[in-house]
Design a protein around this nucleic acid. Sequence first.
RNA 1: GCCGCGUUCGUCUAGGGGUCCAGGACGCCGCCCUUUCACGGCGGUAGCACGGGUUCGAAUCCCGUACGCGGUACCA
Length: 504
Amino acid sequence: MTVRTRIAPSPTGAPHIGTAYIALFNRAFAKHHGGQFILRIEDTDQVRSTRESETAIFEALRWLGLDWDEGPDVGGDYGPYRQSERTDIYREHAAKLVASGHAYPCFCTSERLAAVRREQEASQQRIGYDGHCAALDPDEAARRVAGGEEHVIRLRTPHEGICKISDQFRGEIEIGWETVDDQILIKGDGFPTYHLANVVDDHLMEITHVIRGEEWISSAPKHLLLYEVFGWDAPVLAHLPLLRNPDKSKLSKRKNPTGILYYRQAGFLPKAIINYLGLMAYRPEGDLEIFDFETMVSTFDLGRVSLGGPIFDVQKLRALNGHYIRALTDTELLESLKSWLLHEDALLDVVRMAQPRLEQLADFMPMTAYLFADQVPLDPADIDQAGKESGRAAEWIQFVQWEFERLVCWQPDGIRGCFQSVAEREGVKFKQLLGVFFRVFSGRAVALPLFETLVWMGRDMALRRMQYAQDSLREAGIGLSGKALKRLEKSYQERYLEEGGKDG
RNA sequence: GCCGCGUUCGUCUAGGGGUCCAGGACGCCGCCCUUUCACGGCGGUAGCACGGGUUCGAAUCCCGUACGCGGUACCA
């Protein structure tokens, strides 16, 4: 049997460093056994998935050298590798389960579901679907479905007994069936949920080992049940510990840079990142810390994975990166710098932005230096005053952060739209608002055109600089407290999100 | 709340009953090298969450407690 593993990211937002971490272990394991590593795009969430994000995932994983043997862009014998192109398959499989009685149509409205949950919360009961439609007569249910009534398909789960999950790292995990909900398999829009799509695809794509994040342990019973009712063998399950923020919470962009493309823009070398990610929860042997992917492949052993949630420490990554930079020859370093940002394509854009402002060629480097930096020097008091409304800069930066995260197409017009939308809603002059941001992104009051430079540096780096600014404001005592942030988030949702999404 | 997973220096980890008064790396501190800084070298700082067992012997096995994290969606 050939070992086949996969990474199955959801194309929503910026490619996440956690995806690379899981991908690394899957790829290393597959390659160790001479097997295949597959990339599958889980775009079953029609609302949040975008093609831009998918493309960025390809780009980010390739940059790290985490190539795949089969995937949407390279093909393979088990395609299509995009779940949105496999909906018929899921519907057929769901229909089989309905026919065999293992699943049933559910006609409950979201209002009723919400009411049920409120009641369960109030009476401190276990939260979950109450099985309202499970008892429906199958023939009648079939008639209602045929009549075009809106419905979802739910999995019929047992309500007693114990589900034993064999986890490659943890041994046997026992979860009582009474804690498992009648999971929705097919949503109202006809798309499958992760649970169904994932099981069907892993089986059809002949995935032998599912190495995924620990957040999936509690839904493993549903997956195992699906394998069982389909009459399939389940793959080996192995749940990796989640990467954490310094405060131990699950790695999040608010507290840590999580965008892979940020690390590229900031000048980290792929092999340093791979090495560092490999160090999270793993050590090839004894005290060995410096190793490349090939070493990881040749020595890979699932038994050496440690289970405590590792904190992603950028400082140590930086030290490791420095080690790799020093190991380069001078010409190799030069090549690295070139392929980083000192290549013609990138420089030509910078030259175009700088030209109207240049009086001497010697002005070029100082004028553009901030583009090639990670962090720029920030003066919190100056940032705050730039908006001419003391104390509001932190809020504006936060609103723009949220607008940036939501922006589909990272181009000048869309970026301008984000600023405009914040200027309008916050009642601040566009020019004043931008004054704040020139300082945030360049560390100066005067710089190259803002929207173009943002496109040039990329969304992840833009977000990172805003985070640096927030940190600096907070340190100066004019930033957002946790409480203020919560309030702001609510305000954002009410005033920005109600009027429909934005795109560029 | 309920369910599950986890717990060795500040951080990443080695360790899988005696060789551990716990080893390495990052960080931090000191010294050396050095026109500065960095690199490099040397030294130091700091940890087995707690309480019970099992055992001649426990960081290592078992139980409980505490704490952390995850899940509890028509998100993945």
